[in-house]
Design a protein around this nucleic acid. Sequence first.
DNA 1: GTGAAAGCGCTAACAG
DNA 2: CTGTTAGCGCTTTCAC
Lengths: 331, 331
Amino acid sequence: MPKRVTIKSIADDLGISHMTVSRALSDNPNVQKDTREAVQKRAQELGYVRSAAARAIRGDNSPIVGLLVPNITNDFYARFANTFAEACEDHGLQLIIHLTKDDYAAENEAMLRLREIQAQAVVTVPAPKTDMSLLDAGSGLKNIQLIRQRTDGDPVSSVLVDDSEAIIHAVQHLHALGHRHIAYLGAPEALSSGRQRLAAFQQGLNSVHLSAESAVTLLDAPSQQMGNNSAHRLLQGSDATAIVCGGFEISIGALKALIETNTLNREMAFVGYGDPDFYSWIDGGITTIQVPVDELASSALKIITDETDQSGIEHHSFAAKLVVRNSKQIG
Amino acid sequence: MPKRVTIKSIADDLGISHMTVSRALSDNPNVQKDTREAVQKRAQELGYVRSAAARAIRGDNSPIVGLLVPNITNDFYARFANTFAEACEDHGLQLIIHLTKDDYAAENEAMLRLREIQAQAVVTVPAPKTDMSLLDAGSGLKNIQLIRQRTDGDPVSSVLVDDSEAIIHAVQHLHALGHRHIAYLGAPEALSSGRQRLAAFQQGLNSVHLSAESAVTLLDAPSQQMGNNSAHRLLQGSDATAIVCGGFEISIGALKALIETNTLNREMAFVGYGDPDFYSWIDGGITTIQVPVDELASSALKIITDETDQSGIEHHSFAAKLVVRNSKQIG
DNA sequence: GTGAAAGCGCTAACAG
DNA sequence: CTGTTAGCGCTTTCAC
């Protein structure tokens, strides 16, 4: 194996001091023009690549940021990751993605690895069930929580989604179309987001004077399977004529059920959650609660690149919005 | 800012040598049990994190692998990235994702950054239009080309898809259903994959004794837009009754056009390319050319973790397969 | 202008 | 069992 090309090896090659090489390569003016150019040329030829490690060890912080998400097949995470990655490229940041599978141990492990390589910042979707988080203590690692917020441990910055208004609008929208028995599919109240969304749903019902009894709420660990099962159950034994979804996966699963049974917007009106491309071209367009992915991504990056010291903890929240599309059936 | 906790600072704190700390932390048996435990405890308390840079600088190679893809919203890339990332996690590898937007300059830049941090390997979807690639010269960086293959520069490993058979099958399938005027949407012949797929399509026509004149082939830079436009054109002025797609984006765009115009499997039979989840539950299921994403990902990782020296160049190819689903209309 | 020395955090190779 | 030394590649500081 051809040994590494270093400033020293270049210096030897050229019969000069490694310092001159260093200066030449960093365009330091204190080098004779000829020397500088000779060095740069030779470095190029030899395939020199400066060592990030050697620079990092001296404190020159490496431009690495981490992204910890459960997975990247979920449309929301994929979109976020994509936008965020683009933004990182633009700022010359290297993005390391770790998949946590919503597992706390995996999350911690990933966080540790990021600290080892002196990452500048990390954007995390914190795993739901969690006891503590000691990791962020006094490290240079700027921590930014995405979507979910873990309240234990040191306070950290957060970028959140506020979907309450959108959910309320969804209910009002369905009510306006004549629906009187509206179902809600969402996460259990144990999850903070689940609790909030359910509350918004109920607030929506209130706002149009529908009783809680008129509605059906199915709550369970959010997954496509859950959404699918729930939708099927509603189709079979309930008087619900419309569904509001309180989660990405749930929405996909429920939509799938309606499409497969050809009941979408026939027996069952539907308001999805999230906005995969194909929502807009299925059945004339699926009405949905749209999460502002791009804003979340650029907000997260802004926090990272913010010059305010690492001590500056910021909180940002972006409103989801109801996007009304085609074919919301009446009653 | 609290200065970094190092083995030396721990050593000072404990009044021992930094080597003892080093040994204790790496579970070296040559340390008194008491000492070891005391050190580990103190390190924990102080929030010690070992420096990857310091290790990297000594040659202990850092477990980082890169993935260079145009984007991550494309279903194929997203799936690949996800599977690949999972595999990386399993092997304790850190995955750095760079988005190249199919831009050669961006690709080179990303490659450079990976070399700077002494990444072990990189999986790349090479940008199409490209002159040269000098970067991989004698660096410890194992290079693996994904899907596309760039022939210039040093030879590198590759993980490719062979979709010829599947495309031929697609034509035969449509022919068996009675279609006599089949359209093909694909990339221009300038791209190697475009050329190959088109050839396969024509071979398919041959195999069922359809003349080249009976078919329509629309070739252009692959994009959703292109697929969409092409499909619309076919619907308006052609005698084609079926479409075969030769690309992911094209497939999405064309499918969108058919769904929006409600002509899918009515006026126009359809064979897509790639297999996003929703293909299987739209209109009873979209028949499609399925690319074995997971196999590609694990194959790529296998090459990386392969113990055969970095000199070992491997080439792997995986067959795409035609997945016949519902509702392929006859004539 | 150029070079020599020191040191970042860590571990292999020697002393003790 | 423990400590000392040296050196990885680089830049900052101080000579010449």
